[in-house]
């Protein structure tokens, strides 16, 4: 869905849903997900509809994802770090 104008940026390695990918230093988690070709980052707790980052400035909460095991993080406000584990967030939470 998005392409990088410049490829020379310093890379970090992370995983999205367990799959190893790379992103650039300075990318937000949401930007990294979109640049890796993901079309959506969560499904809603109400209807299960697919949603993707919408505002990229911390107000819409569509980019909620699980980062290093903690859910409901705003992907657009958090920068990627080497070794980060990002997981799409599916529907509502269930009792384990």
């Amino acid at each position: 869905m998005l392409r990088r104008l410049l490829e020379e940026g310093q890379r970090v390695r992370l995983t999205i849903d367990g799959k190893p990918v790379t992103a650039c230093v300075g990318d937000s988690v949401a930007a990294a997900m979109l640049s890796c070709g993901l079309r959506y980052c969560r499904t809603t707790p109400i209807s299960g509809e697919k949603r993707a980052p919408y505002c990229m400035m911390g107000v819409c909460f569509e980019c909620l994802v699980t980062i290093d095991g903690i859910n409901n993080r705003q992907g657009c406000l958090i920068e990627v770090r080497e070794g980060m584990r990002i997981d799409t967030q599916l529907g509502r939470r269930t009792v384990e």
């Binding site: 998005l2 990088r4 930007a31 400035m57």
Partner: peptide
């Protein structure tokens, strides 16, 4: 307006400024 692929212009501008990303397609 909730479909993946629909974003605000400001969101795409943020992606351009912060990461040098532009829409593909």
């Amino acid at each position: 307006w909730t479909l993946p692929g629909v974003m605000t212009a400001g969101a795409l501008q943020t992606l351009l400024k912060s990461s040098g990303l532009v829409p593909d397609g």
